[in-house]
């Protein structure tokens, strides 16, 4: 896929459009686990953000540079010590939360270096996942494309789990979107939504 083809991109990653809708023009953005830099490229083109990505994988570093975005090679599980307090308007963790080892610390770090945090993740409570578990198998789907033995996902959660995590950690949820494919889901989101995006800040 051509990384500059935004309609194709938004269709493939519906959380991108939801994230972009929250981000004002010219914002300072840090994208954790930025992959090939598609989201930052999208935000640069559609929101003129000043962005940086953090990525561990060397091939993705090459892809980000080809994509013309700033990328810092680093391991999220060793924290964000390379970033100063309140350095960014938004810190994004897109489809990466479930693959982080020290998830609790990382969420706190996000709100140390950023004014607001945004995370998107596959909803483990999605009905198709529940059916696969009821039938006796670990879920494998478009959002969760891995087998149990090769998955990088070590901290999967449902919408309920994420929301109670936030309230336990004094994190204020400001807004959220739940979707299945490109379609917004408002009815029984923890059952009918395959992907969720949350925007949050430090609790007072």
């Amino acid at each position: 896929m051509n990384p500059l083809d935004h309609s194709a991109l938004a269709a493939a990653r519906p959380d991108f459009a939801a994230i972009a809708a929250w981000i004002p023009q010219g914002a300072l953005v840090l994208d954790l686990g930025c992959g090939d830099g598609s989201l930052l490229r999208y935000l640069k083109d559609t929101r003129n953000v000043h962005g940086y990505g953090v990525e561990i994988d060397g091939a993705n570093i090459e892809a980000c540079i080809l994509n013309g975005i700033n990328v810092i090679q680093g391991n999220l599980d060793s924290g964000l010590s390379g970033f100063e307090n309140n350095a960014f308007d938004y810190v994004i963790l897109s489809q990466t939360l479930q693959a982080t080892r020290h998830t609790e610390r990382l969420m706190q770090e996000m709100l140390r270096v950023g004014r607001e945090g945004i995370v998107s993740f596959p909803n483990f409570g999605y009905w198709k996942n529940r059916i696969q578990i009821l039938s006796g198998n670990m879920p494998v789907s478009q959002e969760l494309p891995y087998q149990w033995y090769d998955t990088p996902n070590v901290h999967l959660c449902t919408l309920h789990d994420f929301e109670s995590f936030c309230s336990q950690h004094r994190i204020n949820i400001l807004d959220h979107r739940v979707m299945t494919g490109e379609h917004a889901v408002s009815f029984l989101p923890n059952l009918l939504g395959s992907t969720a995006v949350y925007r949050f800040q430090r609790g007072k």
Partner: peptide, 21 residues
Amino acid sequence: SRTIVKSLLHNRRNVSYAEIS
């Protein structure tokens, strides 16, 4: 090198950093 990157980030310069194995 990470110290350099940190200072460039502080000054909001465009910077990419690769740590080659």
